[in-house]
Write a protein that binds this DNA or RNA. Structure first.
Length: 554
RNA sequence: GUCCCGGUAGGGUAGUGGAUAUCCUAGAAGCCUGCGGAGCUUUUGACCCGGGUUCAAGUCCCGGCCGGGGCGCCA
């Protein structure tokens, strides 16, 4: 509804100014939307921008499609205000379940996220990938796109070969109750130490890689067993994080089905291709200095080659291909896109996120230097249990545990989703365990408060009659929700939704503080209850899209 | 060395070239026998440095400085 108004204004401005692009900005406290076109026109027309703005305002106000839009020239700025009727109508939409869900679209989207190597548990760096990816996925679904979420399983890299070598050579004392991914990490760390001590064994690892690429049955089984064990652990962690993948795509499939050979064969005919034992591309024309090696001199393929096959497949089966990858993949991602372009295949849009490090330095699975996601979940849940027990001692234990789990997940997911991906961060236990600030639980709390009011109110007849600034500010924010979802999928920025939800909770808390609902009367009471219902529903939809439980009580 | 990201109050963080730079935290002062105080109000405090483009720069360009990452026949 708002986007209709947005487009109406945009179109009218283009017509009135003759400009190709006019851009609308958030009006802040001045207006619902605003435009600064007058500044630019001032130069071209050699006229005072305030005068231009005044003339434009007159022209626009006369338009028939501006029935619900008031135009005002304030100095050089053009301010647009939506009519009360529009806001009140939009607010009624907001009280209905599913608010913010866009109509079904045709464009098929594939989103790859997490895709961590199965050589140890997911750690606090990986889950930045998971949470960004899963939040984006939820936004795409909310925005009406048919979406498939994939996990790309690197099941044949050198790191997995090292794990397999470790399983074959190191005495393994399995620990009771140990998750598969943690078990694999122990072996991987030990194997790396052993290889450092005896570098001559590296040849054995190379041989494993050659055998698995040839499809040697016994070796393939060993790889699969190790990878599966690790993956089983991942599944548990991912589920606890509330993240779901529709499909696990195994890298080795692209060897077995011949796709890797096919793509390498196509590449071998390209002028940029060089074969001198190994096979590599000279991408200097596309701005890359480094050789892009795709096949080793022993004939085995490199990760990049299989990735080309994988992305060719994705590009042909989906309209929009999105990858969430760590900053360490920036170069290889750019090379991948450049190569796919040369091949005439569709390339992915890549969301790169910067690294999460520990106070003592960067994480390393090989060195065993990491904080696992399981550890984090465990600790945060423990803290949340304490907190819930203090606040709600009267609740039965099972209920307290369920609330604590939701609160813990809210804290973790929100803390990651709120930070824009290009910011590198340092993991801090004190921060992770602190819910006493505007955070996931803070937003859940606003929702619980709203739910509580509605429960006490019982049945009421909805109506909207906004009376004061607190109500208006809250209403204006509520009706922006569908456009926020739109922005997230357009710009691939999940933190916009995180910020939106927090602002909504802020505005609700201010409204809650100043405007009594249950103690008001008549039409004021009904209108405020309707506003509470719209808030509660919008918070619930926003939280759900962030992968956070909208608790009715906590 | 080179390429890519960051650099915004003491700490963290948001900011499409446009109106008084967002929010948390920390510090100070308040609110409450009101619908759930995981709350609210007031206040202290910031755009790394130097040039440039522009009517207008936190935002764009160039050069520094600091932090993170890449530059492997690893993934």
């Amino acid at each position: 509804m708002l986007s209709t108004l947005y487009h109406t204004i945009e179109y009218a401005l283009k017509e009135a100014t003759g400009q190709e692009e006019v851009f609308l900005v958030e009006g802040g406290e001045h207006a619902d939307l605003a435009s600064t076109v007058a500044f630019g026109l001032a130069k071209v027309r050699r006229k005072n921008p305030a005068m231009i703005s005044r003339e434009l305002a007159e022209t626009l106000a006369a338009r028939e499609d501006f029935g619900d839009i008031a135009v005002e020239a304030l100095g050089p700025y053009l301010n647009f205000h939506f009519s009360r009727e529009v806001i009140e109508r939009a607010l009624q939409d907001a009280t209905r379940p599913g608010y913010g869900t866009h109509p079904r679209r045709e464009e098929r989207v594939v989103l790859e996220h997490t895709s961590a190597n199965p050589n140890g548990p997911l750690h606090v760096g990986h889950i930045r990938n998971t949470i960004l990816g899963d939040t984006l996925a939820r936004c795409f679904r909310k925005a009406g796109y048919p979406l498939e979420v994939q996990y790309y399983v690197n099941d044949m890299g050198r790191q997995i070969a090292i794990v397999v070598w470790g399983f074959c050579t190191i005495a393994d004392t399995s620990l009771a109750g140990e998750k598969g991914d943690h078990h694999v990490a122990r072996i991987y760390i030990a194997a790396n130490r052993a290889l450092e001590a005896r570098p001559e064994c590296v040849a054995e690892v190379d041989r494993l890689m050659q055998q698995v690429e040839r499809g040697d049955q016994a070796t393939v089984l060993l790889f699969r067993k190790a990878v599966t064990e690790c993956l089983e652990g991942f599944r548990v962690t991912l589920q606890r994080l509330g993240a779901r993948h529709d499909r696990f795509v195994w890298e080795s499939d692209f060897i077995r089905n011949g796709d890797t050979d096919r793509v390498l064969s196509r590449i071998s005919h390209m002028p940029e291709c060089h074969v001198d034992g190994r096979l590599w591309l000279d991408l200097s024309e596309s701005g890359f200095e480094k050789e892009y090696v795709l096949r080793r001199s022993d004939g085995t393929s490199v990760y990049a080659a299989r990735d080309l096959a994988y992305h060719t497949w994705k590009g042909r089966n989906f309209d929009r291909v999105i990858d969430v990858l760590g900053a360490d993949h920036k170069l290889i991602g750019a090379q991948l896109i450049a190569t796919l372009r040369l091949l005439g295949e569709k390339g992915p849009e890549i969301v790169h996120f910067e690294f999460v490090s520990l106070p003592e330095g960067s994480m390393s699975t090989r060195a065993g230097k990491f904080v696992s996601a399981d550890e984090l979940l465990e600790e945060v849940e423990r803290r949340a249990r304490e907190e819930v027990t203090v606040r709600r001692p009267e609740l039965p234990e099972t209920e307290r545990l369920a609330i604590a789990r939701s609160v813990a997940l809210a804290a973790i997911r929100y803390d990651i989703a709120r930070i824009s991906p290009e910011k590198s961060t340092v993991f801090d236990w004190n921060e992770a365990l602190d819910f006493e600030r505007q955070s996931g639980p803070y937003i859940q709390y606003a929702h619980a408060r709203a739910s509580s009011i509605l429960e006490k109110a019982g049945e009421f007849e909805e109506c909207v009659a906004l009376e004061n600034e607190h109500e208006m500010a809250l209403a204006r924010h509520i009706i922006r929700f569908p456009m926020v979802i739109e922005s997230v999928v357009r710009e691939l920025k999940p933190h916009l939704l995180a910020a939106y939800a927090r602002e909504l909770a802020d505005l609700f808390n201010a409204f809650y503080h100043f405007e009594p609902v249950l103690k008001s009367e008549g039409i004021t009471r009904r209108s405020r209850l309707t506003l509470v219902k719209a808030t509660q529903n919008t918070l619930a939809e926003a939280l759900q899209t962030l992968g956070i439980d909208a608790l009715r009580t906590m």
